[in-house]
């Protein structure tokens, strides 16, 4: 079966290559082949549509953030509030957590939760939604809008209780994640956000969820990085590795070194700076955060070809003296 599929695919590739310079007789033979079996047309489609995609690539352009359409109205209403019938909602907080009142004019009864650097926190909402905050993360919630959250900074793993009538929405980095019953990991940076989906699916909105910007539906194993300007890159991840920081595993794929250092800091509590010249260097690999900050920083340095230097406040990664 598999063998047969492979054979058909091989034939389709051969045809695709042959036809580029084929005469009419070749084409007649091709039509015979196409008609001989439904699977032939399907395999040929697969080959030729994929190849058409490559044709759009201008020679040697690197791949490709695409720019998403953000909502047009600049003076967006802060957010639409959920009906007040949920007013009595309260967050159950596991562990000692800083709770402070945010000054957010349009919101009804806001509060925020912060996890100290190097320590995670778990928040369970009344509807069963569970939010695990990585060290250093801050989450803003509102008693009058129980299905809305804002990740002000840092990383959090969301396990959202599905409610068809009221989707759960998280704002981060000026954009919105709308969840429909799923597990996903979200990172808020100054520059934008990164979201990875473990289960279910989420809708990503460039900008406010109620406005008319682009929306992208993400499935398990999909991750999306997007900056505030709407430049977005989609990638694949291992769904089982999503939110791995929670188990002490930080999995990076082609991430900025500066971001890696920042996220490692969240989990370990260490302050890790990266020399500005190295900030944009890319890093792929898995780091352990559960063996202490020093071990993690040395691993990162070794794997990224940088030098770890102790400073008064923590660590700096530099290029290694003269080199």
């Amino acid at each position: 079966m598999n063998m047969a599929t492979d054979t058909v695919l091989r034939e389709a590739i051969d045809w695709h290559l042959a036809l580029a310079e084929g005469d009419s007789e070749r084409w007649h033979d091709f039509v015979d082949w196409l008609e001989a079996d439904e699977a032939h047309a399907a395999a040929y489609d697969r080959v030729v549509l994929d190849d058409a995609l490559l044709g759009e690539r201008k020679a040697e352009r690197p791949p490709t953030p695409i720019t998403l359409q953000r909502p047009i109205a600049p003076d967006r209403p802060r957010r639409r509030r959920a009906p007040l019938w949920g007013a009595a909602i309260a967050a159950t907080i596991v562990g000692g957590v800083t709770v402070s009142t945010l000054i957010r004019p349009a919101a009804g009864d806001p509060y925020s939760i912060e996890a100290p650097a190097g320590q995670s926190r778990t928040v369970v909402l009344d509807d069963g939604t569970r939010i695990q905050l990585n060290g250093g993360a801050r989450l803003s919630l509102d008693h009058t809008a129980p299905r809305v959250a804002m990740l002000d900074r840092g990383e959090a793993l969301f396990s959202v209780h599905y409610n068809a009538a009221t989707p759960f929405r998280v704002e981060a980095g000026g954009q919105t994640i709308e969840d429909v019953g799923t597990v996903f990991d979200l990172v808020a940076h100054d520059r934008g956000l990164r979201v990875a989906v473990a289960e279910g699916s989420v809708a990503f909105h460039a900008g406010d969820a109620n406005a008319s910007g682009d929306r992208i539906v993400l499935k398990p194993g999909m991750a999306l990085r997007s900056d505030r300007a709407g430049e977005a890159v989609l990638s694949r991840v291992d769904p089982a590795a999503v939110g791995g920081w929670h188990r002490g595993h930080l999995d990076f794929d082609n991430a900025r070194l500066a971001d890696v250092a920042e996220e490692l800091g969240w989990s370990t509590g260490a302050t890790i700076r990266v020399e500005p010249a190295l900030a944009e260097r890319r890093f792929s690999g898995v780091l352990r955060s559960d063996r202490g900050a020093d071990d993690a920083v040395r691993s990162l340095a070794a794997l990224s070809g940088t030098r770890p230097v102790r400073t008064a406040s923590g660590w700096t990664l530099d290029g290694g003296g003269a080199g």
Binding site: L53, P63, P65, D214, R215, K219, A232, L234, S235
Partner: peptide, 29 residues
């Protein structure tokens, strides 16, 4: 894709396709 999630129309035409295309090009590279 959209039906899988919402049983309704609404995902932005184009954007998702373009992202998938970008990802495919990355794989090809």
């Amino acid at each position: 894709d959209w039906m899988d999630v919402h049983g309704d129309a609404g995902a932005t035409p184009g954007a998702e396709t373009r992202l998938l295309a970008a990802e495919r090009l990355r794989q090809v590279d």
